[in-house]
Design a protein around this nucleic acid. Sequence first.
RNA 1: GGAGGUUUAGCUCAGUUGGGAGAGCACCUGCCUUACAAGCAGGGGGUCACUGGUUCGAGCCCAGUAACCUCCA
Length: 880
Amino acid sequence: MPTKYNHLKVEEGKYKEWLDKKVFKPSADPDAAPYSIVIPPPNVTGKLHLGHAWDTTLQDIIIRHKRMQGYDTLWLPGMDHAGIATQAVVEAQLAKENISRYDLGREKFIDKVWEWKKEYADRIRKQWAKMGLSVDYDRERFTLDEGLSQAVQEVFVRLYEKGIIYRGEYIINWDPKARTALSDIEVEHKEIQGAFYHLRYPLADGSGYLEVATTRPETMLGDTAVAIHTGDERYKDYVGKMVKLPLTDREIPIIEDFYVDAEFGTGVVKITPAHDPNDFEVGNRHNLPQLNVMNDDGTMNDAAGKYAGLDRFEARKEIVKDLKAQGYLVKVEEMVHSVGHSERTGVVVEPRLSTQWFVRMDELAKRALENQKTDQKVHFYPDRFEKTFVNWMENVHDWVISRQLWWGHQIPAWYHNETGEVYVGKVPPKDSENWTQDSDVLDTWFSSALWPFSTMGWPNTDAPDYKRYYPTNTLVTAYDIIFFWVSRMIFQALEFTDRIPFENVLIHGLIRAEDGRKMSKSLGNGIDPMDVVEEYGADALRWFLTTSSTPGQDVRFSYERMKSSWNFINKIWNASRYVLLNLKTFSPNDIQLDETHMTVADRWILARLHETIAHVNAQLDKFEFGEAGRALYNFIWDDYCDWYIEMTKEVLQEGTAEQVRVTQSVLLYVLDAILRLLHPIMPFVTEEIYHNIYDENTSIVTAPYPSCNAKWLDEEAVENMSVLIELIQTVRQVRSEVNRPMSRTVDLLIQAHSEEVLQFMRENRSFIERFCNPDVLEISCKVDIPEEVMTKVIKGAHLYFPFAGLLDITEEIKRLEKELEKWQSEMTRVEKKLANEKFVQNAPGQVVQAERDKGAEYEERYQVVKEQLEKIKQMEGNKK
RNA sequence: GGAGGUUUAGCUCAGUUGGGAGAGCACCUGCCUUACAAGCAGGGGGUCACUGGUUCGAGCCCAGUAACCUCCA
């Protein structure tokens, strides 16, 4: 093994090996419990970003952990056709050659999109490979696959037959750039600087005027009434009269309706039923005409008279200009207000009267909500996201599912060419020549909502995967698509499979740039995960993503932390090198954990290992990856590398053959466990080292995950080791204080408080010598204390450092006084606590006892320091 | 307007059943100790946003305040 970890070399070729060995495939072992995850299918629109890397890393950790634990694991990959987004990028590409989709026609255009899809699907698979994701490619699905398309049709037809899917003319959110309908949640509301235009509408009889206010003056051309709140005293006499609509020759009625807020503005509002959802309702109640004044691209139509052909915002300017010129504009108030923007194209969404297909949400939502009250509910991690889900479900509106696009699942509805009759079915009507299929496609989320079961073979409920792996166990996704996707999967699964689609939903946050801002194309601050992998390796990226946050919280990308992740792997790499270099001919088969020849270090590291194993397993099961990572980091770096490995050097160099064999056994046993513990998080490097230990034909992917063996939880060893560690650390501290590097010796007298400590110190004399480098080392219960000496107290012993002629007495007195003060204050703190009767009464016995022990300890240390201080002061006095 | 989140060391963040505040990076000091100088050893640095409350005991539980962020309407 080279002295430095080389991520490029380590990761190269591994993924292919795994695929060749088919280790990612489910074991299909009938005795094993199944565990399944479906990947949130990325859009085939483009490359994967760091958010995908994070999301899939978490899934890979879960699935690799379960796989190693012996579950029959399936991680099903796939991709989403992403209607609007993909169609938009392909259209943009064609636009460069001055071709529109209409030039090509539907069929040829779709062929173009499939070409795009093929290219990007390949890229995405390459990215998955780079990240090391253990998915089963034999089961990869695409939302426009034959099978999934059938599921979509099945669902559409069944919901239609139940009356849950309906078609109708309503106000929907319209994206004038993509020229399609959008659902409510595809609209982003942004606060923007706008204006409130106060307009004067003259009464037709010339007896005055009414003042209305609007933020969208261009829609006035489509006004078909003016309304006041029902019974509003100020205006009730006007009801039934007509106003003359400025800039037109139309007269429109004054009506009263409860919807109007009398307190807001002037209390009079213009009613535009074809361009506003509330006005639409008002219009229906009063049988008002619906006058659409815009085209589907956001330009004004012929109904707008002289403004026809102008873009809506141009028209706004012109209309305001004309209103002003003709004296109809009262004032313009600057105002910040919330305006809907298309989540996809970014343009201002236009509320528009339009015929669309809808999913009636009341019953579906009700069932999903009621299910959350049962023990069959979906568990959210962190659980606060259940509230997000429930709140949305409680307030959900009907879902617009038709999109005026070409790329997607064409709606399985046909209209009779003559009668206009509607036919909905999985197959076209028999006399198909007399029918025309609806040209629209379904919202992409309509198909993604079926993903957990459509990918498993549904609607064939006898499909083997459906029977074995559905419902899935865990879904991992970011909080920003709880509404779009998670919620819809839940209600569709309940409706069509009678079960929840997954037991657990693990919600994570978003990745932000180093400065905390969102990564976005417009800011140009996006980071390509593949660049990061190139620079630091997938393992380091995975480690960073896993350990840098708490569930549900956003994470900032950080090159600094990437570097420290890489350093950690380099540390593991070098620790492994050390072990392998010292194994010589020793192989895993030679491992014998022979307790009779174990040192305290051996027992201790085994205890710490099994403690860590228990902790890590518990944390992984709770999806607390950060906590699991920290436990591993501390164990590996602090316990294994800084202490255990250093201590093995003594045994390997000086020990008997038997002792060496035990040490080699423990070194390898622990390393092997470390690799398996880490493998779900950093699959590549652990496999590489595993191959160095075992042979290339084995794979750590299917090795068993460590489980805690209580036999090794040796509390005595942990206690003893802590004494040894304190001893060594104290000596190092003294060295630092008196400026003595390890290359120079320091004499050390240890006075043990008990026979046990004495014996322990003597047994471990060789460790003390190695770590403290003393010239004289005395260990006894009664030390002859020299005059010029530095004193330290550790648990169970006093340490004396004779510095004849070298000790700065004044400095030492200062130091001792400071230390005395410290122990004094500690004693006071404990005494105060123990003097509190309520504490002694109410606190748990072990907490009280711990305080008493500490008190005794401090008292002891205090006394020693005090005695020494007196002695040294006397000595100083004698000198003078 | 409603809901949620955040506020802990210079910076970025942990802190899981309430029992003496931690990591990484940065900083200071000393070490090329044959696994690793991308390392080792030692060290400095925090009224845990603020105000009350519950409790023997609060970074952690409760109420309120402030600032910032997000979602929904």
